[in-house]
Design a protein around this nucleic acid. Sequence first.
DNA 1: AATTCTATCAACCGCCAAGTC
DNA 2: CGACTTGGCGGTTGATAGAAT
Length: 345
Amino acid sequence: MVRTPSCDKNGLKKGTWTAEEDRKLTAYVTRYGCWNWRQLPKFAGLSRCGKSCRLRWMNYLRPNIKRGNYSQEEEDTIIKLHESMGNRWSVIAAQLPGRTDNEIKNHWHTNLKKRVRQNSSVSNEEKHDTNNLAPREKRQKRLKQPNNSLANQITSQIIDSSPSSPQPCSSGSSTISKDTAVATSTEAYEETSGNFWTEPFLIDCSFVSSDFLEQPFMNTEYISPVFDEFFCPYGLYEEKLNSNNLSQIIDSSPSSPQLSSSELSSITRDTAAATSTNMAADDNVTSSEAYAETSGDFWPQPFSADNSYVPNDFLEPFMDAEYLSPVFDEFMCLYGFDGEHEGFN
DNA sequence: AATTCTATCAACCGCCAAGTC
DNA sequence: CGACTTGGCGGTTGATAGAAT
């Protein structure tokens, strides 16, 4: 069931994740967020590609993931949705909180597919079976499909029921096409299941107080040093910085680090993501401001702000200094901290 | 007990869309 | 406009556990 660990040509590890790697990844993501999956392994001290880290987190380590034992209701939902929209696993997964698209896909292929075949006529099966097509053709066919029935209904419900109208993106494009809305199922997931960060604590955890969600985020103890590293040189935080003592820390730090174009690119991408996911409709809010306003959800605020919000059994394994990235220490020192990470040990 | 077969599912791979330069 | 980067998606693989022989 697990792959033998091996390395690719770049020396990056492949195959089964070890418990140690899981701890490192979870520790990092819970504390600093997924600000850039490509860069994340380097900062988290992992010899994995970003894609592998993302997959591991999304499909396995993310809190509140349900595993095994599908209920009858869940299976009926999967069958119904698959009948309607085919192999659009991410859209189906958006309707099943706690289930990942990968897991649903596996469950379909190992259990439900057979059951459906037994219970339905061949013609009905062929209606949505795209197995005779090459992968490229399948995808093209899927993307060209008219926005039919249930898939669109679901997407519409997702958008309509979102707490606030999300801003499309930082590019200023104000229209969200049906195709885009349907295709970007991750957005759908976020809208139905809540924000990537707050979702695990909101769905079934009554321990999140309302004032926690409203409390100001811009406090030095909540801010990722990596976040500072990337944003401060570009002035994105000036307004906020003026209102707290972080500005003093930055002012006294060495010269501002330079960003490569790809790094900056990733920031703007994340900015857009944060904006579209979290920001309340406000045409006067720029993407960077939106990011600043929403970063309380984007960064692991719940853990730093007050650990009592989080179940101890989830947190404890990751609150050990040994899982801190060495790079983290470098940044902490850069901004005037002495390596004592208050609240983390 | 040894071997073969089957089911499971974590993880990889290639492709695509969107955004940036 | 094309090249490039990144995140996300669905298809597929392959190691392993357990069942069957």
